[in-house]
Design a protein around this nucleic acid. Structure first.
Length: 858
RNA sequence: GGACGAUUGGCUCAGCGGUAGAGCACCACAUUGACAUUGUGGGGGUCACUGGUUCGAUCCCAGUAUCGUCCACCA
């Protein structure tokens, strides 16, 4: 044995050099040597705020686990680096910097602002590159094509033109969600609804018989009212339909119209109509050809009303309008607080203002249908499938998608306008006519992000990568991003790639929460910084903790203690491996034929085989949590607690050639199996144990069904029972762990040959003795010669407790067997099992009773 | 208002039509032969509630309650 492991386990010393080695060798990028079918994974966009968000750490963890396993299985794996997309978060960071010095992007101008954002991005490097920098790796992202200024722009322009030509993109004047702080349009999904305490004010329009009461939460918009609507069959108002009524304060005559939209049961059954400032009212306005009067500007300041309210902020105006109405005695009722859903900007939380404006839209119906069909037909599978209804609910009811943003950081809309108002989309290889001007707006970030699944492969060129890796096998991401990103990718991809969906499987994991299951938030102070914990406990510990907590589709709690536990596990593995190697564990030579092995060796091979097939299957099904549990218990319980313990006697005698080889084999296979979830430590241990070049490209273990040996398993179960019983006896008797006590076994032959191994584990000195105490388990009686008399009281108490348990178990079994219905209908194997249980409990009761009577009187 | 999910030991969560599981926490003992980032032993749950199906329900069905998440243009 040439190399050996350090006596203490130090994650930092192992991880940093390995990280650099792997990156240099390209194990984080492409490995296209194999002719096997492609299995590729795509990465989500890095979180460009510069802080590695824990959600993304989970994405990366699970994707890396899968891709490592697949590569070891011989699949071709392409790891695509994070996309440098036009995220609004990036822009926000720079805007915040400006705000700190009292400026806005408008003070800077478009060109300077974009320059500043670029500068920031280059400095921060984004999350993934930042992480690599920290680890000292120099990275050459040869496959990074998806940048703002290069391939991505070409793809964006190309698809815009194709969609425009296919009548899927249009420009229209509509009510859109407008953020008065960001000064841009927002898509529906960028609006977050929350219940706010507002007010519901009932206002009387008109006078005397010719009056009608309307209720509103937005009194200020009455300045732009152009109608009052009632339900066409509402008897209370039938006589008023077609007449006019006067809007208070501004004295405008407006018609009373009948519209199905109005709910007669709500409020007074009459609703004021402000087509320019409410989406419903806009629709009503269209139906009844009403005028749209804009009374709020981009900053949500009241304008053009020729009233005292001009120049007021919308909220101030609301108050002032209500006060003025109250002064005129027109307020019929006021309800405050009135809880109702209000839209907020997802960037800055400002209350969104519905605004009439000219924007670019995607006609989503055909694309959304294709995206839905791909899942309905089974071409794409959503894991876990409980989340599929959410997907359908969304794609089946999607409104047209507003894609223009009045921002500067992003892909500029490739549309140019001529002097006479002509409109032309300028494709990637075209040039706009002289004198024309480009649309000042940029595209929604998800418009470009939606192209991730094909643009990254060089689309629109027909590249080799595109042919090979489209569609990809699995998309791993959090369910929170299903609508933002996944749906857009499904739509854009099916359109661009002739109806072929971008992935075979969409695997959605949950979000990481704090140890009490609460959402992490800065204000709550429960945010976990993965980098900090990687430094403290090692990347393996963090990764294993995340993988272990990842149940499909459900959130996971994460606490520092959990990570510490994983670190302890890594330490345990390290020490066990060190111990194994000190005792000569080896991978040299043929694995001995199972016939020649003792039952303990047979048993660990059997358990290994079962573990390998179980873990492989679980990982294939994205059951990370259960896969990790299985590995954990095999490694810690089976291997460390039992196999190594039961083999110690053989090692101490120096006669354990077969066991050394078996142990070497088991560790070799276990390291391969665990490599995806604990890559660094397994790599270090595996290369030291085997002398192999690197575990990254080693073969994935294959279960050996011939190793499964149920006889050996039940024998070892008996040995475990005996060991546990003796330990318990020692414990109850207060015998020091370090004290070797003389004793002997009375065991059937199949167990007798292992009594020396047991004796070593439980610290017994085997010999011919005069027994003063005994205990029994698994049909074996163990006698001891204790110099001092035993603690009869403790022993009696324990035996009585065991007796009670056995009697209770016996009764349950008897009741079942006496039940005619059970005997008639229960399956055979269940009946046999209960019979066996009855037998066992019966002998247990006899044995324990005998022991009890044999005890001296206390 | 819709959709989905959850309710299992102190905490976070698995599981399953056939005697309730894990990790952490807790109690006791022990520095022993790789490991105190340890070992050994132990305590602790009428599986939210009410009905139903079944020989048998924590598991399947129905209802109730509480909680969570997402979606939603009711003024």
């Amino acid at each position: 044995m040439s190399a050996e492991l350090a006596s203490t386990f130090s994650p930092a010393e192992i991880e940093a050099p390995l990280y650099e080695k792997w990156v240099a060798a390209g194990y984080f990028t492409a490995d296209a040597q194999s002719s096997k079918p492609a299995f590729s994974l795509v990465l989500p966009p890095p979180n460009v705020t510069g802080v590695l968000h824990i959600g993304h750490a989970l994405d990366q963890t699970l994707q890396d686990c899968l891709s490592r396993m697949k590569r070891m299985q011989g699949f071709e794996v392409l790891w695509l680096p994070g996309m440098d997309h036009a995220g609004i978060a990036t822009q926000n960071v720079v805007e915040k910097q400006l705000a700190a010095s009292g400026k806005s992007r408008h003070d800077l101008g478009r060109e300077e602002f974009v320059k500043k954002v670029w500068q920031w991005k280059k400095e921060s490097g984004g999350a993934i590159l930042g992480q690599m920098k920290r680890l000292g790796a120099s990275v050459d992202w040869s496959r990074e094509r998806f940048t703002m200024d290069e391939g991505m722009s070409k793809a964006v322009v190309t698809i815009f033109k194709r969609m425009y030509d296919a009548d899927l993109i249009y420009r229209a004047e509509r009510i859109i969600n407008w953020c008065p702080r960001c000064l841009t349009a927002l898509s529906d999904i960028e609006v977050e609804h929350s219940d706010d305490a507002g007010e519901l004010v009932s206002i009387r329009y008109g006078d005397g018989d010719n009056s009608i009461v309307v209720a509103t939460t937005r009194a200020e918009t009455m300045l732009g009212d152009t109608a009052v609507a009632v339900h066409p069959e509402d008897k209370r108002y039938l006589h008023m339909i077609g007449t006019t009524v006067k809007v208070p304060l501004i004295d405008r005559e407006i018609p009373i119209v009948a519209d199905e939209h109005v709910d007669p049961a709500f409020g007074t059954g009459a609703v004021k109509v402000t087509p320019a400032h409410d989406p419903n009212d806009f629709e009503i306005g269209l139906r009844h050809k009403l005028a749209s009067i804009v009374i709020l500007d981009a900053n949500a300041i009241v304008v053009n009303t020729n009233s005292v309210f001009d120049g007021m902020d919308r909220f101030d105006a609301r108050k002032a309008v209500v006060d003025a109405l109250r002064a005129e005695g027109r307020i019929v009722a006021e309800k405050r607080p009135y809880m109702h859903a209000v839209g907020h900007c997802s960037r800055c939380d400002t209350t969104v203002e519905p605004r009439l404006s000219k924007q670019w839209f995607v006609k989503v119906a055909p694309m959304a249908k294709a995206a839905a069909d791909a899942v309905r037909s089974g071409e794409v599978k959503i894991e876990p499938e409980e989340l599929a209804p959410r997907y359908f609910e969304w794609v089946d009811n999607m409104h047209d998608w507003c894609i223009s943003r009045q921002l500067w950081w992003g892909h500029r809309i490739p549309v140019w306008y001529g002097p006479q108002g002509e409109v032309q989309v300028v494709g990637p290889d075209e040039i706009a006519p002289a004198g024309w001007t480009q649309d000042p707006d940029v595209l929604d970030t998800w418009f470009s992000s939606g192209q991730w699944a094909f643009s990254t492969f060089g689309w629109p060129e027909n590249t080799a990568d595109l042919n090979k890796f489209y569609p990809t096998s699995v998309l791993v991401t959090g369910y929170d991003i299903l609508f933002f990103w996944v749906v857009r990718m499904m739509m854009m991809s099916t359109f661009a790639m002739d109806g072929v969906a971008p992935f075979k499987t969409i695997m959605l994991h949950g979000l990481v929460r704090d140890q009490f299951g609460k959402k992490m938030s800065k204000s709550r102070g429960n945010v976990i910084d993965p980098i900090e914990f990687m430094d403290k406990y090692g990347a393996d510990a963090l990764r294993f903790t995340l993988a272990r907590g990842a149940n499909p589709g459900t959130d996971q709690a994460l606490a520092e203690d959990w990570i510490g536990g994983s670190r302890n596990f890594a330490t345990k593995l390290w020490n066990a491996t060190r111990f194994a190697m000190m005792n000569g564990a080896t991978v040299q030579g043929e694995l001995p034929a199972t016939d020649s092995l003792n039952a303990i060796d047979k048993w660990i091979l059997s358990r290994l085989s079962e573990t390998v097939s179980e873990v492989t299957q679980l990982l294939e099904q994205f059951e990370f949590s259960r896969a990790c549990e299985t590995m954990y218990h095999f490694a810690w319980d089976d291997l460390c607690d039992w196999y190594l313990e039961l083999s110690k006697e053989a090692f101490s005698k120096g006669d354990a050639a077969a066991t050394k080889r078996v142990l070497g084999y088991v560790l070799d296979q276990l390291f391969r199996l665990m490599h995806p979830v604990m890559p660094f430590i397994t790599e270090a241990m595996w290369t030291t144990l085997t002398g192999g070049q690197t575990l990254v490209t080693a073969q994935w273990p294959v279960a050996n069904p011939a190793h499964v040996d149920k006889k050996a398993e039940s024998l070892v179960a008996e040995l475990q029972e005996i060991v546990t019983e003796v330990r318990r006896f020692r414990n109850d008797q207060g015998i020091k762990t370090s004290l070797k006590i003389p004793g002997r076994f009375f065991a059937p032959p199949h167990i007798a040959q292992y009594t020396s191994a047991i004796a070593f584990v439980v610290r017994m000195e085997l010999g011919d003795i005069t027994p003063t105490a005994k205990c029994e388990a698994a049909g074996v009686s163990v006698e001891f010669d204790l110099s001092q008399s035993i603690d009869v009281v403790a022993e009696r108490a324990r035996l009585e407790k065991d007796l009670a348990t056995a009697i209770k178990d016996q009764q349950t079994a008897e009741i079942k067997l006496a039940n005619e219905g059970f005997m008639a209908k229960a399956p055979e194997n269940v009946v046999v099992e209960i019979r066996e249980r009855l037998e066992k409990t019966t002998t247990d009761i006899e044995r324990i009773t005998a022991s009890l009577t044999a005890l001296p009187q206390s």
